[in-house]
Design a protein around this nucleic acid. Structure first.
Length: 640
RNA sequence: GCCGAUGUAGCUCAAUGGUAGAGCAAUGGUUUUGUAAACCAUCGGUUGGGGGUUCGAUUCCCUUCAUCGGCUCCA
């Protein structure tokens, strides 16, 4: 007999060689049905693997991230099996689980059409119904290589040959399909109850653009049809919230093929919101000890040579332009300009930390295929700042930044964040020891704030490591906004100095940071987060005044004037239309408040308020109405 | 940039190897309106651009531009 300890501390006595599934079955049948994978003494194993000694056991269902990962990994195998049956000439590459579902890469000359996907999906359902068991076989690397050579799977052979001699590998087989795989896997394919293949696309073998482009199929599966329907509904919802669609409908921005791809035209509504965001941003920065600066869009080649951009960043820079025999570049970053400001006078340690902030518009060459609405563009405005401080001030500045950034993002209604610490990339300036030092400093700041973070190996900027903060939106998606980048290189390269208390020159430290990231991307995220139903303080039009008929035009205009005098952004709809029509229009434009003004209101000198999405709130005096809207605006801003 | 798809009126979408159509929007009029679409009329397109095949192309082919979904990259 062996003792199996469960997460709640309970100990179960089991026969030696019992499996995790046996344990689950003993607890209750339903759990056994739902169990996907077992964690025995911290190691993930197939639920059918015998447990030979006392062990701590954790059972994962579809409710856990690990459970879903295994589930989707097995689903990828199922898909590959279906593809091999339908298209035997196809070579299989790799097929992992991803955050939402799974994919599998195949080598096939033609792309998979929508009809192909349907066929594959159908075959997956059939194979799932056959409840084929995922059988694990351990073997020597060499044996596996021979096996996959016989089966004419060159990608598997390549993977195997990259492994060290003498490695033991495992292969999993379900039905006629065999795959090189660490596992673990589901018990059998019958656990997969609902299948949806979402899209097919090209993908480079091993993610390297020098390699052959394979054909990838993305799919998702669930233990029930209901869960699949729910997931598809979320995708539909995301489509409705797409900032490109809302941007057009709410007349916020556009991108013109004539102007150029990736270049944003901010329409009056969008520009109004942008100005509100910027005003708020400036106010908070001044409050937090920043000095606002403003710098040009071009700089001489030598500047970018000194900064290292031409060596490390030129792939992202637009070509040089010739000005009277001198080469100039459009700026991809603001840092050299802020440094130039710093260097205009001799600095004392008493001045530090200096915090220069700017809404700096930069231009970066992005490959045409990556452009995406406001999220990925070629010209954008970074809410940039550079903090120049003494080494001793670094930790405190990074900590302040974390607090400042989260406060600002909360002000816009975001409350969930994910943190990343990004380390030295392949192409980088500076010595590895310096990198380690700087990375440790950022790590300390995160740990001091007791922030959970993930490590992003090699994800740093070329000049230093960074902390990235991603915000979670109302659909649970993460977007990168804040980035806090340590830099020990530019100070060196530009020979920045300050005079210390010892009356000697010293090299300052520098931090680059953007809190919103880029205004363009942040605006896109805002649109999708709120689905266009912005908090009132951000709305381009806060109140639409709607007279019931032309007879109340003057009465309505007086109210409009009063609202504007109070500082509200109000408009009036004097079109020759019925009020149902005007209300519908205002509702579709997602204007938070409508004042409906007719005989009843004129008689009592009141306004009827209609709230967007809620409907008629009844009659109020203008003073009451104003208080109401002010309260709404302040309510949101209190969260700052 | 690479793989794939798409491109018809301001928007959403039809249609066909033989002179391109609807709804909304816009414009003009009628109506003076009470909480999500009044009625009538009118305007609007070299079917993204260029080239080719054809008696004839919006439809088929090539090319180019742009967009969409991915890959690589990234604020």
């Amino acid at each position: 007999m062996i003792n199996v300890t469960l997460p709640d501390g309970a100990v179960m006595e089991m026969d030696k060689g019992s499996s995790a599934l046996d344990v689950a079955e003993k607890i209750n049948h339903n759990l056994a049905l739902r169990t996907i994978v077992a964690e025995v003494n911290g190691q993930l194993v197939d639920v059918t693997r015998p447990i030979e000694e006392d062990a701590a056991l954790l059972l994962h269902t579809f409710d856990s991230e690990i459970g879903r990962e295994v589930y989707w990994h097995s689903s990828a195998h199922l898909m590959a099996q279906a593809v091999k049956q339908l298209f035997p000439e196809v070579k299989v590459a790799i097929g992992p689980a991803i955050e939402n579902g799974f994919y599998y890469d195949f080598d096939r000359d033609e792309a998979f059409s929508d009809e192909d996907l349907e066929k594959i999906e159908e075959r997956m359902r059939e194979l799932a119904q056959e409840k084929q068991r995922f059988e694990r076989v351990d073997m020597a690397r060499g044996d596996a290589t021979k096996k996959f050579k016989r089966r004419h799977e060159p990608y598997k052979v390549e993977l195997l040959e990259a492994m060290p001699r003498g490695t033991r590998v495992s292969v999993y087989q379900q039905g006629d399909f065999i795959d090189l795989c660490r596992g673990p896997h589901l018990v059998h394919t019958g656990k997969i109850k609902a299948v949806k293949l979402l899209k097919s696309a090209g993908a480079y073998w091993r993610g390297d653009e020098r390699n052959k482009m394979l054909k990838r199929i993305y799919g998702i599966t669930f233990p029930s049809k209901k869960e699949l329907r729910k997931y598809l509904a979320v995708l539909e919802e995301a489509k409705l919230r797409d900032h490109r669609k809302l941007g057009r409908e709410l007349d916020l921005f556009s991108i013109s093929a004539d102007v150029g791809p990736g270049l944003i035209l901010w329409h009056p509504n969008g520009a109004c919101m942008r100005n509100i965001i910027e005003d708020y941003w400036r106010k908070r920065h001044v409050e937090n000890g920043y000095k606002l600066v403003s710098t040009p869009h071009l700089g001489k080649a030598q500047l970018w040579k000194t900064s290292g951009h031409l060596d490390f960043y030129s792939d992202s820079m637009f070509a040089a332009m010739d000005i009277e025999g001198q080469e100039y570049y459009v700026k991809p970053m603001n840092c050299p300009f802020h440094i130039a400001i710093y260097k205009t006078s001799k600095r004392s340690y008493r001045e530090l930390p200096l915090r220069y902030a700017e809404m700096g518009s930069v231009y970066r060459y992005e490959k045409s295929g990556v452009l995406h609405g406001l999220m990925r563009v070629r010209g954008f405005t970074v809410d940039d700042a550079h903090i120049i401080c003494t080494p001793g001030q670094l930790d405190e500045e990074v900590e302040k930044l974390l607090t400042f950034s989260l406060g600002m993002l909360r002000g816009f209604g975001f409350n969930d964040f994910a943190f990343y610490l990004a380390t030295r990339p392949e192409k980088a300036v500076g010595e590895p020891e310096e990198w380690d030092l700087a990375t440790e400093s950022l790590r300390k700041a995160l740990e001091k704030h007791e922030i959970d973070f993930k490590l992003d190996e090699g994800g740093g900027a070329f000049y230093g490591p960074k902390i990235d903060i991603k915000i979670k939106d109302s659909l649970g998606r993460y977007w990168q906004c804040t980035t806090i980048q340590f830099d020990f290189n530019l100070a060196e390269r530009f020979e920045m100095e300050y005079i210390g208390s010892d009356n000697q020159p010293h090299r300052p430290y520098m931090i680059h940071r953007a809190l919103l990231g880029s205004l363009e991307r942040f605006f896109g995220v805002l649109i999708e987060h709120y689905a266009g139903n912005f908090p009132t303080w951000l709305c381009p039009t806060q109140v639409m005044v709607i007279p019931v008929s032309e007879n109340f035009k003057h009465f309505a205009q007086r109210k409009l004037k009063a609202l504007r005098k109070e500082g509200f952004r109000a408009e009036i709809d004097l079109r020759n239309e019925k009020i149902g029509y005007k209300i519908r229009d205002a509702e579709m434009m997602k204007i938070p408040y409508m004042f409906i003004l007719g005989q009843r209101e004129e008689d009592t000198n009141s306004v009827s308020i209609r709230r967007h999405g809620e409907g008629d709130l009844g009659q109020f005096t203008l003073e009451e109405a104003i208080k109401k809207i002010e309260a709404d605006i302040n309510n949101v801003k209190d969260e700052e």
